[in-house]
Amino acid sequence: METVFTPWQSLSGGVLIGVASILLMATLGRIMGATGILSGLLSPSSTSDFGWRAAVLLGMVSGPVAVMVVTGQMPVIQVPTPTTMLAVGGFLVGIGVTFGSGCTSGHGVCGMARLSARSFAATITFMLTTGITVYVVRHVLGG
């Protein structure tokens, strides 16, 4: 499935992700990592711990709705993945980010931004295995 190269849109989206990460660190002293926020929400340490995590998640979910209100269109989501593979992939992502303590936002943005060696190692690792997996799925197994 072909997609259109969108450097400016992607760059401005990236800048906003950065702004959000700075804001959460400046106010609550927390890493804007989707894994960490979700994982803590599933087993919160206290009511106030649950509160801020739920508020961040609610904000995230409002994102596409805000985009629709402004532009009149929901963000484009094209899913070339069969349903079974979505479930298998999702389960593996859940296992991986829990043991790996983070994902693209936590390690790839926040962790690398504070020059964490763990985050550099994690990001290099998952970028490599994602690339290899996409190659195998699309060019070895078929596609």
């Binding site: 990592g33 989707a34 894994t35 979700l38 899913v79 070339p80 993945t81 593979m85 979505l86 298998v88 992939g89 999702g90 389960f91 593996l92 992502v93 859940g94 296992i95 991986g96 980010v97 829990t98 043991f99 790996g100 303590s101 994902c103 693209t104 936002s105 390690h107 190692a121 994690a122 990001t123 690792t125 998952f126 970028m127 490599l128 295995t129 994602t130 690339g131 290899i132 997996t133 996409v134 799925v137």
Partner: peptide
């Protein structure tokens, strides 16, 4: 190991948590 597994799942599904 966890990051490697995350990447495999991401490559299969196309979604990451963020």
């Amino acid at each position: 190991g966890g990051s490697a597994v995350f990447g495999i799942g991401w490559g299969i599904a196309g979604f990451c948590p963020g």
